[in-house]
Design a protein around this nucleic acid. Structure first.
Lengths: 247, 247
DNA sequence: TTTTTCAATCTTGCATACTAAATTTATGTG
DNA sequence: CACATAAATTTAGTATGCAAGATTGAAAAA
């Protein structure tokens, strides 16, 4: 909600949760459970028993139950009355689904950002874009993805819309879970990087029509790439089964 | 004090129908608090003291604290560590803000619905549209608004996107709070009704380009009308002050 | 054997108890 | 009187206790 008045670049987006708070076990529970769900350590359909979790996380059931409410709002777990909370089962098309919505949201964000972002914010975006370039050159995939996330977060930030930020943040965990399935191949990586260069250029020029097109296309292209990859995997699996049978 | 009361002894004496609701006090708390916030009974900035609320709602602090997590996800309250939960203060531009985001979401929803909705779903939309027409003719504003909400909900439904449904539902309470400020004048009402006729025609024809334009415009027009109204109110207030001074 | 019943057990939902942090009030100091 | 400081009070955060609903599994019936 607070639009940052100073150029606190990337640090601010990561800093607040870093130190080990003694209080706020509820937040520990939220973060811990969310991570476990996103990494698949807690697989879809898993029953989350409060007592077991409380022993595992070293706290009582109370903060865990409160964490469940947050995770339920994010759509990561389902709450059934008098029954154990379960990790929600992502639809098989969830990845495409969540990226489609994110595309629409970021398209709007880009549009708003073009109208509202300050010179400082454009400068920060430039720095983030430089980071992205660096990591792409070095083929540092993990750092690249982190820089990528920061850029998208920054654009949302620059849009200066409370509601947009609210729903974007809510959707992010689902996107992370969806992304977990996807493996970026180099072809798509290069393509996406090129798209990011165009996105930066458009936003720096405050071309709100172009930025919307570019951002929406950025996500659609990602989805298409995922689908292609998926089709390839299915084909590969089929041929493996065939090889097995005819061996 | 008996620690082990018999189960069956007094059970018959209570009529099952008159019991308000035994389980799920948490949901009662969520609904009750949300309604109070939306109606302004709990004004923005109000401190929500757990003990006071628990007495007021006839339950302990536990379900209320759990409800806070849900309301926080909806952006209706802010959680500050070791400090009272407060009703979030809507930005003065929150109404425009939330409708802007809803416009983008429903634009996408319309697009997806054009591709995916079944003949049955189109038929239902037609019935809802008929209701809307009826209430418009009768100038029944409250029923009209309800029918209006059902139509938008149905379109979201027809899009068949889990993520879209998730974020749309999350945003609804904020939209309701924003709408609380707005008073639909007759000019805008007629205009909006006409837009709904076009929206229905476009979706029935599965024209996904048109439907997106119409839905986005529908929200933008609503925002413009709100802004105009607001400007008028400000002008009126100014002239009242002037009248006061010169009296 | 398979199916049904029912009681023992487990798990959730809520209330209450306790601890620690924040706020308020009282007190001291210049 | 203004201001700082400490004690008292209030309030949030967490743990624990208990009853009601769900689950399980063994015995009884088919």
């Amino acid at each position: 909600m607070a639009t940052r008045p100073r150029k606190t670049a990337t640090a601010k987006t990561r800093a607040p949760a870093e130190e080990p708070r003694k209080g706020q076990r509820r937040l520990d529970a939220v973060n811990s459970l969310r991570r476990k769900i996103l990494t698949g350590e807690l697989p879809p359909g898993e029953r989350l028993r409060e007592i077991a979790l409380s022993e595992q996380l070293g706290m009582s059931r109370t903060p865990i139950r409160e964490a469940f409410q947050t995770l339920a709002a994010e759509g990561l777990v389902d709450l059934l009355p008098n029954r154990s909370v379960i990790v929600s089962v992502p639809d098989k098309s969830e990845a495409a689904d969540v990226f489609t919505v994110l595309g629409a949201l970021e398209g709007l964000a880009g549009q708003l950002a073009c109208r509202r972002m300050t010179a400082d914010q454009i400068e920060i975006l430039g720095e983030l874009q430089d980071d992205l370039a660096l990591y792409f050159e070095k083929r540092d995939r993990l750092s690249y993805l982190e820089a990528n996330r920061l850029i998208h977060e920054h654009i949302i930030d620059c849009a200066g819309s409370t509601s947009l930020t609210l729903v974007w943040r809510l959707l992010l965990p689902r996107a992370e879970r969806a992304r977990h399935v996807t493996t970026l191949d180099h072809e798509r990586w290069a393509e996406a990087y090129e798209e990011h260069r165009e996105i930066y250029a458009a936003i720096a020029a405050r071309d709100e029509v172009l930025i919307k097109q570019l951002l929406e296309a950025h996500f659609i292209n990602g989805i298409e790439s995922m689908k292609k990859k998926e089709a390839e995997n299915r084909a590969k699996k089929r041929s493996e089964i065939y090889a097995e049978v005819t061996r």
